[in-house]
Amino acid sequence: HNGKLCKLKGIAPLQLGKCNITGWLLGNPECDSLLPARSWSYIVETPNSENGACYPGDLIDYEELREQLSSVSSLERFEIFPKESSWPNHTFNGVTVSCSHRGKSSFYRNLLWLTKKGDSYPKLTNSYVNNKGKEVLVLWGVHHPSSSDEQQSLYSNGNAYVSVASSNYNRRFTPEIAARPKVRDQHGRMNYYWTLLEPGDTIIFEATGNLIAPWYAFALSRGFESGIITSNASMHECNTKCQTPQGAINSNLPFQNIHPVTIGECPKYVRSTKLRMVTGLRNIPSIQYRGLFGAIAGFIEGGWTGMIDGWYGYHHQNEQGSGYAADQKSTQNAINGITNKVNSVIEKMNTQFTAVGKEFNNLEKRMENLNKKVDDGFLDIWTYNAELLVLLENERTLDFHDLNVKNLYEKVKSQLKNNAKEIGNGCFEFYHKCDNECMESVRNGTYDYPKYSEESKLNREKIDGVKLESMGVYQILAIYSTVASSLVLLVSLGAISFWMCSNGSLQCRICI
C-alpha cells in the first residue's frame, strides 16, 4: 500500500475532517465546509473527530445509520420544511452556546429548535410527501429539559409530546424532565432520530412541544462500492481501485494482509504473511546465498510486491572476458508455465471484495464479540484455502523447474562428451581453451567436438587428477538461474548478450 488516501476510480472521497457522521448530518456549525458535499467514492472519518452533536445527546440507531450510509455515493440536500413558512405559530430561531460559531450562539444547520411564540405553543402538524424518486433521509430531535421551569419557559406545556409517523415508522416521544450533570454547559439533553422515507411515502410530524424540527433532508443515491473508513492518512493526487484505512492498494494479487476493511475492488484479506509461490528452483544453499535460486511470486499485497520470474541462460568467462545470454527457448517455456500457473491461482482465488467494518453500540458488546468470532472463522478458512492451494502448486513448480534445468544440462553434456569433466555440482571442467566463438557454439548447439578432442585428450593426460582450476583450465557451469522482474525479464530476452569482463582471468566458464 502507499499510505495515502486516493480517488477511487477517479472519484474523490468525502473527508469529514474534524467532524464525524453525526456532526455532518445534523449540521454542526463547525462542519459548515461539508454542506456543499454532493457525491463521493467513500467517506473518511478520523479516529478522534471532535465535532459531532454540539448540544449533548445521542443519535439513536447511529450504527444502523452508518451502515445505511456505507452504500450511499451521492445525496441532494434540500429544504424539507421551509423555515419561514412551515411554522407560522412558533418561534424557530432557537440557539445555544453549546453550538457556538465564530463566538456567537448558533444551532444545527439542518434542524430548527421550535419554541413557544408569545406565551403559547399551539399543537403543530406538518407533513412531507417524498417526490424525489429515491429514498429521503429525514432527521429530527426531541429536547429533554433539566427542570419543569425550563419546560414551561420554552414550550408552555408541561405534558408535551412529539409524534412522527410514516408508512414504515411510527413513534411517540415524551420529554424526560430530570436533573443531569452539566455537559457542554447544558443540564438538558437532546436525542436525535432518523428514518428513511421511501419514494411516494408521507411523513407526518405532530407536537405540542420539545420538537427539534427537520429543516433540511437528504435524497440518497446508492453506490455499492462506497463505504466509510476511519483513517488518519492524508489525501493525495492519486487514483486506485482499492482503498484501505492504511493506504491505497493497486494490485491484481488475490490476497492482502494490510487491513480487513477495504473499499472498492480489493484482494481478499488473509492473516498469512508467507503466502508465496515459487518460480525458481529448489533451494541450493551456495546459490541461494548469491540470490540466484528460489525466486518467488508473492500473492499477498503487503507481504511480497508483485511476481518475480526466474529465467535460464548461459554465463561464460574466458580470456576475452565474461558474458550472459538467455536461453530463449527454455526461458519462454518457463515463463509460459509460470504465467499459466499464476493465472490459474488468481482465477481460482481472485474475487474482488469490498469489506466494511460493522458498528455496534456499547450495549451490543456481546453481539460485536460474536460477530468478530464469526469473521475470524471465515478469515481462517480463507487463509487455509489460500495456503493449501499455493503449497500444492509450489511442489509442481519445483518439479517443473528441475526438468527444465536438467534438459539444459543434458544438452551441454551431450555436446562436450569427454572434452570436459562433470564435477558433480552442476559444473563441467573443460580440457581445452574455449574462446567466445567456442562458447557461442555450446550455447547454440553447434559445438565442434572433433575440433577440440585432441587438445582435450592431451590435457587429460597431463592433469592426472590435479585440480583443474589450479592448472588454468576452464570450467563450464551447467545450471544457472538469475532473477529478474517481469519487465526486466522481457528486456533481457530482447538482448543477445551483455558482457562482464574479468581482467586477466584465465578461467573459461559457460553457465546455464
Rank of each mutant, 00 (worst) to 15 (best):
K406D: 14
V278S: 10
Q320K: 07
S286Q: 15
M471A: 12
E455H: 02
G465M: 14
C242S: 04
I263A: 01
L403G: 09
N336T: 15
R290L: 01
N444H: 06
S453H: 15
T331L: 04
S330R: 00
K241F: 08
E319P: 01
E395R: 11
K341Q: 05
N418T: 15
V390M: 12
E410G: 07
N232Q: 12
D448C: 04
Y431E: 05
A484W: 01
V345D: 09
V483E: 00
E422F: 07
C238F: 04
N362P: 02
I510G: 00
T240N: 06
M367F: 14
A478Q: 07
G291L: 03
N252K: 11
N362I: 13
G302H: 02
L506H: 03
A420Q: 01
G424L: 12
G424V: 04
I296Y: 02
V342K: 00
V483C: 13
E347W: 00
Y480S: 08
Q288P: 00
K411D: 06
K417I: 13
N371S: 04
K373E: 10
N350C: 07
G504S: 10
D399G: 08
G465A: 12
R443Q: 05
P260C: 00
Q317K: 11
V261Q: 12
V261I: 12
K341I: 04
A355D: 00
L477S: 00
Q507H: 09
D448T: 05
Y480V: 15
D375G: 03
I476T: 11
C501G: 02
N336G: 02
I476W: 08
C438A: 05
G310I: 05
K373H: 11
E454T: 09
N394P: 03
D375S: 07
A495F: 01
N419I: 06
Q256K: 02
K421L: 13
E237D: 14
S453N: 11
F400Q: 08
S497R: 00
A334R: 05
K241P: 10
N425E: 06
Q332K: 05
Q243K: 06
N369L: 06
S505F: 07
T262G: 15
M500C: 02
V473T: 08
T351M: 15
